[in-house]
Every structure is written in C-alpha cells, then in structure tokens.
C-alpha cells in the first residue's frame, strides 16, 4: 500500500510543520489558524488508520467547536502580537537537554520494570480497525454497556453549561 504510506507521510509532515507554526507564530491568530491545520491533518491521519468516526469527530468538534472557543478567548482577552523574541541563553537549552535525558530515563525504567512491551499483543488487522472504528460499533456498545458513562458525560456537559452561565452572568460592581 504505497499510497497509504505517501498519504501518511504527507499528513505527518503537515501536522509537524503546523505544530511548529503554533509555537513560533508571533500573532495569536496565526497560532490558532496553525492549530486548525494541525487538527485537520491529524483527522486525516485517523482516516488513513481506518478510524472513520473519530476522524470526522476530530474535524467537527476540535477544528470546529474548540477552535471557535479558542478564537473567542483570543478576542475576549484582546491579545496582541508578541514582541520579537530576545536571544535565548544557554540556560534553557541546557534545561531542555537535561529534560529530554530525564524523560528517556523515566521511559526506560517504566518499560523495563513494569514489563510494558512496545509490541502490540496481537497485530491489528485492517478489518479489525474498520470494524472498531465505525460509528455503528460505537453506538452498539455506547448505549448498552457504557450507558452510565454516557450519563456521567451528560452531567459533565451540564456542569460546563451552568458554570459558563454563572461566570458570564456575574456582575462586577
């Protein structure tokens, strides 16, 4: 499947480039738009892995709704473009290298002492991925076995609504 590989590498390259763009953009709006591109390319990656439902939801919820919220926050706080960066000293670079070293060490300890293997227990076939990634499979299990979890999610969303109303309605004398 050469085409799948080409698509994967193209999307991965866009994802990494746009993620770097989020970090280095001086204007918060450019940063947010780079994040949209990043989320869209990750959605494409989900599609190449046959996770169709999560791919569409990624676009609908993250690139659609969450980004609207992010842009609203930018407008609300009236963020301006950041000033040009000052030159980075040796301290942060040394800290970065030490942090990477510590992370590698932690991962090594975790992988060796807890017996976590990087290899999957059983290889995932395309048919399995297609079956498990479909909205039908999710619906079958979400409204029966995980019905209680769904109601908990509903309560969480209710709390978000009530919290937003509470915060926005507060009068400052």
């Amino acid at each position: 499947m050469a085409l799948a590989s080409v698509t994967f590498f193209a999307l991965a390259l866009i994802a990494i480039a746009s993620a770097v763009g989020v970090l280095i953009a001086r204007s918060p709006i450019y940063s947010a738009l780079s994040l949209v591109l990043n989320l869209l390319s990750v959605a494409g990656l989900y599609l190449t892995m046959n996770a169709s439902f999560i791919g569409v939801i990624q676009i609908l919820v993250y690139a659609g709704a969450i980004m609207v919220l992010v842009l609203f926050v930018i407008m609300l706080l009236n963020l301006d473009a950041l000033p040009s960066p000052r030159s980075i000293g040796w301290g942060p670079i040394l800290g970065f290298v030490l942090g990477i070293g510590l992370l590698a060490q932690l991962l090594y300890v975790m992988l060796t002492s807890f017996g976590i293997s990087l290899e999957a227990a059983e290889p995932v076939t395309t048919a399995m991925a297609v079956e498990n990634g479909s909205a039908n499979t999710l619906g079958q299990i979400l409204f029966t076995e995980y019905a209680l979890h769904l109601q908990v999610a509903a309560i969480l969303l209710l709390a978000a609504t009530v919290g937003a109303v509470m915060l926005a309605q507060r009068r400052f004398a």
Binding site: L60, V61, A65, L76, N136, L138, G139, F143, L157, T161
Partner: peptide, 22 residues
C-alpha cells in the same frame, strides 16, 4: 463567549447522537 460555550456543549451532544442514529 457564553454562546460559544453552549454551542460546544450541544455540538458534543450531536456527536453522541450520531452513533445512536447509525
């Protein structure tokens, strides 16, 4: 911002209803 927040809540609700419809 409040309108955007409520939009997100009902957007997520529709996401949960899609597997139900399918």
């Amino acid at each position: 911002y409040l309108v955007a927040m409520i939009f997100i809540v009902f957007d997520v609700e529709v996401v949960f209803m899609y597997p139900w419809a399918v």
